[in-house]
Design a protein around this nucleic acid. Structure first.
Lengths: 113, 113
DNA sequence: ATGGATGTATCATAATATGATATATTCGCC
DNA sequence: GGCGAATATATCATATTATGATACATCCAT
């Protein structure tokens, strides 16, 4: 069960989403996020690493050992059970909103008294 | 055509979404937002009115006349063409993410080298 | 062995969100 | 015809989140 259904901050969402596709180090997350959002949204280093720190503090991600022979600078991260749950809640929230938007006739109807 | 496909701040999104269902005054937006997010996310007065101001500045919403005989305190807002376009871009972005998440096998696969 | 890409990190600042509080108007109701 | 609760907008002070710029070390191809 996820915390709440409050919206996730954009950068946090992207990082969780990227990690859902497999463990990654910071830079790889950055590249992946660019792909995911199709170039429209870049996470720069500042946002990336401060957000990673926050996610670690919240126990939504954790640091894990990477493959033995990889670049020694890299620090690998993995979604925790809790993080996965938060991500799924957010995806569900989005899905609901999209569904609702389709169910309603968009663009201005009459004012509500 | 919408500005970008960068994610919308949560409060801004909810306000645009609420207005897509018809023109409303601030307090009604607040109530609607609570409904939309099914109780999980409340926009308090501070967030509401500062965000409304920002949306006005961006020309994503505009103030309009309400029904004649309504409570004189009320100030009504309406989505602009531009705001509508931004909202639709955001919904499309969400839809894409949801679709992508379904296309991938969620939860940790192998680390990426 | 040198230069460009990779990778992490942090400073200073801006943008956003929020709790608390204030104040005025409207409305039901007796 | 006045009282209290809900409605409605507004703002202050603060917390949270995002970001540009920059720094610096390591790796890798040539």
């Amino acid at each position: 069960m996820a915390e709440t259904n409050s919206p996730l901050a954009p950068a946090a969402f992207l990082i969780l989403f990227a990690l859902a596709g497999g463990d990654k180090h910071g830079y790889a997350i950055m590249r992946e996020a660019r792909l995911i959002s199709e170039g429209g949204f870049e996470i720069g280093p500042a946002t990336l690493y401060t957000t990673i720190q926050r996610l670690l503090d919240s126990c939504w991600i954790e640091e894990v050992a990477g493959p033995e022979s990889s670049d020694s600078r890299r620090r690998y991260y993995s979604l925790t059970q809790q993080g996965s749950s938060v991500l799924n809640a957010e995806l569900k929230r989005m899905e609901t909103l999209v569904r609702k938007s389709k169910a309603m006739r968009l663009r201005n109807a009459d004012p509500i008294s």
